[in-house]
Every structure is written in structure tokens, then in C-alpha cells.
Nucleic acid binder design. Structure first.
Lengths: 192, 192, 192, 192
DNA sequence: TATGAATGAGTGTTCATTCAT
DNA sequence: AATGAATGAACACTCATTCAT
């Protein structure tokens, strides 16, 4: 039913994501995507201008999903102390990553396609970015270490991503480590 | 001069590394590699059985270089307290990464070629691996947190890699942060 | 005109057959085939999964044509005496071979591509094969010599094929020898 | 020991023959040949001007071997009656083919490389050819059917070749059929 | 005699993209 | 909205051949 309701556009994006996750980003081709969706190859171009836009859209969709799941108000609420807000942030990334175990991997894979290691998430350099603002304030307030924001964010993402990948690969059970355990490592690293 | 002395094999590997770093691992093709080296495309196959072996060799070369620069004795020397040995380890990764700013990126890119994010360094699952042993002992001794070794390693690599990439991209000066700063974040995260 | 009506698929197969007959099976390449048909090389893959399937299809087409021209009922009609049925069989091969002078050559050439000389026609080892059944019955009835069926079939095909090739090469006129002449040699060899 | 005494030239020819018999004539390449012999690829060109000459030499060598094993005097001895001489001829082909089970196959494969089905053996059109002379005389003497000599020769070769191939493929035991059985079929076909 | 390095042409195959229907 | 046919460019890889050593 859900499948039935899904637009072709979505189906195509799903196929791209699936191919990336199973065979790597270099394996994505309109041929394979179309075959997987069950449409003609040329059909892909009805929904996406070209391959790059298709892949970009998959990236954007993933970002949008993260943003949609994220409670930005919690992070900007000045009435909540900064450490608490950072904890919320970490928890949100953690929860999202567990709920969508392939999401971070997918983003990282797409990034690697083009070369050069870019920031793990968009907006790391965007001063308007909510998280960047939160962490910047935290540095100024002397709450977390005076290090580049990107280092703090990298800490959050790499630890959670590695943890999720481990779970995904069955290297240990989800019950083996709680959020508190993971959070402790991250926060100990960040905090001043 | 140096170029003159270099064997074709090395030149080819260099070209592969360069292409990966500038255009991503998917952009590597025997055609481009040969063109960059200034030889006929078929010539690549005189030195490498196939493309995969070529790329693998670039990976192995990078690993070998890291290993060559690493002082393993320091890490296994039982007379040195564990925290000190871990510090040596972090310092070695840090120094290497600064001296070879593309090395970690290169390794990460090659890994991502095939899909699925594997461990950043080989031997993470290899119990004989010196670093794995060191960290395992550290956990048993209650020196660092009781979390998967891969999480601790991921912490080390992602922080140092992000830092190096930032420097490489000119986001801030190398003098802006000392090793001590970086180390502090990592060690605070790890230590119990 | 006929060319206009022919599907691309057929044209491609025709080109393959032509190349095999003029330059041998090893000379078949998608490049040459496409050039001969007047299409892009990649176009071949719209109609055939790969080169092997293309060549196989040419083989199958030839077999199908033979089967289509063959009156199998005559060969299985138990009311007709076995020698007469064998004569019909020989006559059918003869007529077909004269009408399609390249057909047997084509089949033989394709067979030789892969190495080892296989049976000249498919189904020589297939006990369900009508001809095999006919000849087997003939042996049991003591009508033809008690020798492997493949020898009898080889006799039929090699004599007729050589004769047709001779005609094709203009070594003598078709009028020089009648079917009766050819048949006599074959039948004398087979019969007990 | 024998191998040690063999000249490189011979070893190369052997490799070509082996490749043809196992993988078909199209699979012959200087690369594979050299690898099989254990020499450098370029080395092949020390002994043969080019690939064609190499393959031709393998062909010639096979022919020469047949000729060497054949007792030509028996076939031209006018004191022996023609039917007896033809029987000797058939027996010689038979014996040779059993002793060198791949020889006829090899010759046929090489022929097929170039396209067009040529005569099965060289000299079929050469009036000086001993066998052609024998069969021509036989026709004139009214001993065998008045059909093209090539048909008679094709009869001999195809039957014996098919029989040998069957043995080679283990389709039946050599003891299952005697020379007399095979000879009977051939001679019944030829004789007037 | 023997080799390894070199190369240009060729192989089969896949690709992203376009276009008429 | 959807398709199939078409294509040129790229791909990895193999080849026959040459040449300096």
C-alpha cells in the first residue's frame, strides 16, 4: 500500500539509496536504477534533469528527513542551559541514527563520490546553522573546549555513526551499550 | 629529479592517489591515470594486473607508509604505563597525519569505493593488531571507557582527520591549535 | 525492399552470418557487425545481451530454419518403410543444403568457435531426436550397419556439405551430379 | 627428458596446438602461448615472423607428421590392385587418427579460423597428390563411384574423424568397433 | 638467444543522455 | 507520463608487434 502510494520520484530515489548502500556510490547508474524500479531507463529523466541532480536529490531528501525529525526549538530554547541543549542534540542524532541506520552511511557515501572530504553535514560552515550556533555559544560560554566547531561535530557524528554501523553489522547487540554510555564518551570529549 | 628516479609503478600509484584526492575514487580510470603519467593506457597493465589491484596497491602503500612511520615498540612496551602508551599512539597518528595530510583521506576514499563503510584502518578487527591490543588492555585495566575498541579508534581517527582536513582546506592555521588541544579532546573522551 | 521490412535484430544476425562466412567466426566483432548494419556499436546490445548470445541466436536461427523446412512427419510415419524414410531424410538435408548453401557451413563454423568439434547438429545425442530415433530403429531392424548413430549422421552431413561447398565454390556444375548419385554413396555406406 | 631435448620452436608449436584443442583457434594469442611455454611474449617472434606464420607452421607440422607416417609407396605401387591400395590408404588414415587422436581435429580447427570451409586436407585439388591420383585412377577404372574425388576423401576423413572424436570423448570403447567395421562403411560408400 | 618495456589498435561492454512516438 | 530506440563516449582489458638492451 505504501509502495503503491509512493510516487515514481520517490521510488527512484529509494533505488539509488539501495544501490549506494549495497554496492557503493560508484555503482549507481540510470540503467540499474531504472531496472530496479521497473521503468524504462529514459524515464529517469522525466523526474530528474540528470544523474547528478538525482543523486543530489537523494542527499537532500536524507538531510530533509533528519531536519524533519530534529526538534530545532529544543536546541534554540535559551531558557534551557547549554549543556542540556547539547545533550538533546546528541540524543537526537543518536535516536535518528538508530532509527535510520543507513542514513549517515548514505550521506557519507554520496559525499565521497565527488572527492575531497567535505563536512559531514551541510551547514557546518553555515553560521546560521542551529547546531553551529549552539556549539559556538557553548565555546564562548566556556562550556565546551575551545576547538573548531567542526571537530565537535565530527566527534558526535563519527562516534554515533561507528556505533550504528557496528550494530548494523551485528558486531554487538544494541542492548550492550546504552545511550548514556555513548553520550558519556562524546560529552567528556567536548566539555571543558 | 625525484620524478626521474621514480619507477613507473610508483608514478602510476601517485597518479591514482592524485585523482582520488581531487575527483573522488569513482573518477579513477586507467585512461586518466595513463594520461597523467604520460604513458599509453595499456601500459598500466604492465605494472598492475587490473584496476582493482592497482587501487589496492595504492591502499597498501599508504598503510605500509603509516606502519613504517609508526614506532610499534613504544606501544607494546609493558614498562610504559598504558595511558602514556595511548598518548604516544595518538601523537603518532597526529604527527603522521600532519606530515601526510592526504593520507587518511586517501584511505577513507578508497574504502568507500566498494560500498559500506568499513573500519578506517585494517586490523581493527584483528586481535593481533597492536593498537587493538593496547586499547583492549586499557579497557580491562579500567583506564579507558568500557566501549567497543572501534569506537575509541574512530574517535582518534575522526578527530585527527577532521583537524588535518581543516588545515588542508585552510580553514584555520596550524598554529591555532596545538597537539595538546587535540589530544585533550580525544583523551577526555576515551578515559574512564 | 526486403531489407526495409527486416527488423534490426534480423539485420544484425545477417551481418554476423555474412562475416562468419567470409572471414571466419573469429572475425566477428560487435564493431564490424554494427558497421555492416550501419548502426552504432552500442546498438548491438539493445538487441542482444552480449556477443555470445548474438552468435548463439544466429546458430539457433539456422537450426530453426532447418527444422522448419524439415517434414518430421514423413520421418516418423511408421507406415513408411524405414529405408524409404531414411531416403526422405537424406533428400531433405540435400534439398535444404542446396537451397541454403551456406547454412551447414555456418553451423559448422559457429561450432568450431568454442573449440573441440562437437556434433554437427544439435540433438545428435538427444535420444528424443527424430533422426536419432529413426536411425536407431534402422540399426535394430538390421536395415543399416550396426555403427554409432553419429557415424551415420556424419556420413550424411559431410557428404552433402562437401558437395554443396564444391558447388558453391564453382568446382563443378550442379547438373554434373544428381541427388541420386549423392544418395547412392550415402546409402551404400549406411545400409547393411 | 624428451621435453628437455625439444627446441623452443617445438615447445611453442605444442602450446599453440594445446590451446587450440582446449579453447578453440580464436583463443590463440602470443601472450597465452608464451605464458604456457614459460618464455617472454616477445620471444615468440624470435622463432616465428608473426602469429599467422606460427599457426601455419603448426598446421604444416601436423601435415608433415601425417605424411611421415604414411607409406606412400604402398599407395603408388602399381602391382597392387587399386581396391587394396585404397584399403591401405583408409587403414593408414585410421591408424594415424587413432594414434594421434587430436590431429584431425587440430587441422580442422586451424582451417576454420580463416573462414570458408576449405578442403579438409591440403592437396585435395593438387593433381599430383598421391591420394587424389589413386582415387582418380579408381574412378577411371570403374572401381569406385564416379563422384568428385573430394567427396570420397570427405567420406574417409569425416567418418574416421567422427569415430576418433567419439572415442576421445569416451562415448564408447575402442574395442566396440573394429577397423573392419569402419572400413566397411567407407568402402561400401565409395565402391561402384 | 632472450627479455622487458612500450604502444596503438582493437575487444566487449556500460553509460548518460536525447528524441520521436 | 511513458517508452524504446538510438548514439557517442567512456570503460577495463587484451592483442600483435617492435625495439633497445
Amino acid at each position: 500500500m505504501k509502495k503503491k502510494d509512493m510516487s515514481k520520484q520517490t521510488k527512484i530515489q529509494d533505488a539509488v539509496a539501495a544501490i549506494i548502500l549495497t554496492s557503493g556510490p560508484a555503482a549507481v547508474s540510470t540503467t540499474k536504477v531504472a531496472k530496479q524500479v521497473g521503468i524504462a531507463q529514459s524515464n529517469v529523466y522525466l523526474y530528474f534533469k540528470n544523474k547528478q541532480e538525482l543523486i543530489d536529490s537523494v542527499y537532500q531528501r536524507e538531510i530533509a528527513q533528519i531536519m524533519g525529525t530534529t526538534n530545532l526549538q529544543l536546541l534554540t530554547d535559551q531558557t534551557i542551559p547549554i549543556p542540556k541543549r547539547i545533550q538533546y542534540y546528541i540524543q537526537q542524532v543518536y535516536d535518528y541514527s538508530l532509527a535510520h541506520p543507513d542514513s549517515l552511511t548514505l550521506l557519507q557515501q554520496i559525499k565521497s563520490l565527488k572527492g575531497q572530504d567535505l563536512e559531514l553535514l551541510p551547514g557546518v560552515n553555515d553560521p546560521n546553522n542551529v547546531v553551529v550556533q549552539l556549539l559556538t555559544s557553548a565555546i564562548q560560554a566556556g562550556v565546551i573546549k575551545n576547538l573548531p566547531v567542526s571537530l565537535h561535530m565530527s566527534l558526535v557524528f563519527s562516534i554515533i555513526h561507528t556505533h550504528t554501523s557496528n550494530l548494523n553489522a551485528g558486531r554487538y547487540l544494541a542492548s550492550a551499550y546504552s545511550f548514556a554510555d555513548i553520550y558519556q564518551l562524546i560529552w567528556d570529549g567536548m566539555k571543558k
